[in-house]
């Protein structure tokens, strides 16, 4: 918990030190429902919404604004006890603009003593009518640790910290975005988990004026078995 609070304080303090940067902040709730279809196959659906509250590039820097909603659907195929290949589609609705994204993922999950580590490699391609196609290459490492005992059991709190690197290419322009994602989670039971924390993103990293986003995130993961 102390690590999480320290990270949040560090991120908030850092905003004041980057005068040349843009800064926005808001809410980012997310729901993921995974349905087990077979021993090696599951279907994962998600909905994620962004709501802006702070934007220092606007005259009224503090104002509520609904930004967008993402609907995603992925098929996940387990290819080993700790490896999976996933592929799917995301629909983004942003005012009157609609984007389509195709997604390919490769995941590795492994344990190191009492830690669980997840490595996620993603390529995605985003298309819409108003901008050129965008191609991204992403890598995320996530660490998860029980706050009581050596492994996470139902009814227990846990700490989850993620770090993601996103390279993108659009109209011959490349960019790098870095994300730091500290969360506190609670495993309600074997099917339900809730998490709360911040999703801090530094974009436009290669250029002089970086973009800083700090989202207050709430995640709910629900899993069920189609066969039962």
């Amino acid at each position: 918990m102390r690590i999480l609070i320290s990270l949040i304080v560090l991120i908030v303090i850092s905003q004041g030190t980057w005068a040349q940067s843009s800064f926005s902040s808001g809410l980012l709730p997310k729901i993921r429902v995974s349905i087990k279809l077979g021993d090696h196959l599951k279907w994962v659906n998600g909905i994620e919404s962004r709501q802006l509250i702070i934007d220092n590039t606007k005259e009224n820097s503090i104002d509520y604004e609904y930004v967008l909603t993402d609907f995603s659907t992925l098929l996940s195929h387990k290819i080993g006890s700790n490896l999976s290949l996933n592929g799917g589609y995301l629909l983004r609705i942003e005012e009157n603009d609609i984007s389509h994204r195709t997604i390919q993922q490769f995941n590795i999950i492994h344990a190191v003593q009492s830690l669980r580590l997840g490595h996620r490699f993603v390529t995605d391609q985003t298309f819409n009518n108003s901008t050129s196609p965008k191609f991204r290459l992403r890598y995320r490492i996530t660490m998860e640790k029980a706050l009581s005992g050596q492994k996470i059991d139902p009814g227990e709190l846990y700490l989850k910290i993620g770090n993601e690197y996103l390279g993108s290419l659009q109209s011959n322009e490349s960019d790098l975005e870095i994300r730091v994602i500290p969360f506190v989670g609670y495993e309600i039971d074997n099917k339900n988990k809730i998490e709360m924390g911040v999703d801090y993103r530094v974009g436009n990293f290669i250029n002089a004026t970086s973009e800083n986003d700090l989202w207050l995130s709430f995640n709910w993961y629900y899993s069920l078995d189609w066969r039962k």
């Binding site: 669980r116 996620r120 998490e195 993961y221």
Partner: peptide
């Protein structure tokens, strides 16, 4: 038994 890993994957 494997624990659910959705929150590390998605």
């Amino acid at each position: 038994l494997p624990r659910n890993t959705d929150n590390l994957e998605f």
